Computed example of a mutant assay.
Amino acid sequence: MDLKLEVLVLPVSDVDKAKAFYVDTLGFRLDADFPVHDGYRIVQVTPPGSACSVIFGEGLTTAPAGSAQGLHLIVTDIEQAVGELVGRGVDVDGPFHDATGAFHHADGTHRIPGLAPGRPSYGTFAGFADPDGNAWFLQEITVRAPGR
């Protein structure tokens, strides 16, 4: 059975502010903006090159605004991606790598500034947040692990 991740739901406090951030600042494609009725609005955006979309709006989740953490966007050149985001006005932390050489710690401990030594795939990260504090990471992958 194939299972494909299609949509992530983000909790936001201000739909129009989130829409401006994701579409105008980050450059995500606007797929839909459906104001169904008072208290129920669906905005769907898709990161460039992604098969998975992001939905936010009103009446879509009971999660507190800004509570989505650890969302990852994959890039092939993290320095270029960080530079582009900074150029778009996004406050980016990184690039960095974890002292263990594995996936980064959620609390920011063991974080070492700069590219992972030897720049292996999966080893370098950068982080940013949307206006509500939903936390995103860039992860550099240039060669995928077998079977991916």
Score class of each variant (00 low, 15 high):
residue 93 D to H: 06
residue 99 A to K: 14
residue 60 L to A: 14
residue 142 T to M: 07
residue 68 A to L: 13
residue 113 P to M: 12
residue 95 P to R: 01
residue 96 F to K: 07
residue 117 P to D: 15
residue 86 V to Y: 09
residue 84 E to F: 13
residue 99 A to M: 13
residue 132 D to Y: 10
residue 119 R to K: 05
residue 120 P to W: 05
residue 82 V to S: 02
residue 115 L to E: 03
residue 112 I to Q: 11
residue 123 G to D: 10
residue 128 F to N: 03
residue 87 G to E: 04
residue 136 W to M: 15
residue 136 W to T: 06
residue 106 A to W: 10
residue 137 F to T: 14
residue 130 D to V: 12
residue 138 L to A: 13
residue 74 I to S: 11
residue 64 P to R: 14
residue 101 G to N: 04
residue 77 D to Q: 10
residue 94 G to H: 09
residue 115 L to D: 03
residue 117 P to C: 12
residue 83 G to K: 09
residue 59 G to A: 02
residue 71 L to Y: 01
residue 85 L to D: 09
residue 93 D to P: 01
residue 96 F to G: 06
residue 81 A to E: 05
residue 82 V to A: 03
residue 95 P to A: 03
residue 137 F to S: 14
residue 130 D to H: 09
residue 142 T to R: 11
residue 92 V to C: 03
residue 112 I to N: 08
residue 94 G to P: 04
residue 124 T to N: 00
residue 95 P to Y: 00
residue 106 A to P: 02
residue 81 A to N: 00
residue 113 P to K: 12
residue 118 G to H: 08
residue 124 T to E: 03
residue 141 I to Q: 07
residue 140 E to P: 04
residue 68 A to C: 09
residue 144 R to T: 03
residue 101 G to R: 06
residue 71 L to R: 01
residue 60 L to K: 15
residue 107 D to Q: 02
residue 89 G to H: 07
residue 112 I to M: 11
residue 116 A to W: 04
residue 65 A to Q: 05
residue 64 P to E: 10
residue 124 T to C: 05
residue 104 H to Q: 12
residue 127 G to D: 02
residue 110 H to C: 12
residue 74 I to M: 11
residue 66 G to S: 08
residue 117 P to Q: 13
residue 137 F to M: 13
residue 70 G to F: 11
residue 119 R to D: 00
residue 67 S to I: 03
residue 139 Q to W: 01
residue 101 G to F: 07
residue 70 G to L: 06
residue 130 D to I: 13
residue 58 E to R: 15
residue 87 G to V: 04
residue 131 P to K: 04
residue 106 A to T: 08
residue 130 D to N: 09
residue 114 G to C: 06
residue 124 T to F: 06
residue 65 A to Y: 06
residue 117 P to H: 13
residue 120 P to V: 06
residue 106 A to F: 14
residue 54 V to N: 00
residue 80 Q to I: 12
residue 102 A to K: 15
residue 67 S to H: 03
residue 100 T to C: 04
residue 140 E to L: 08
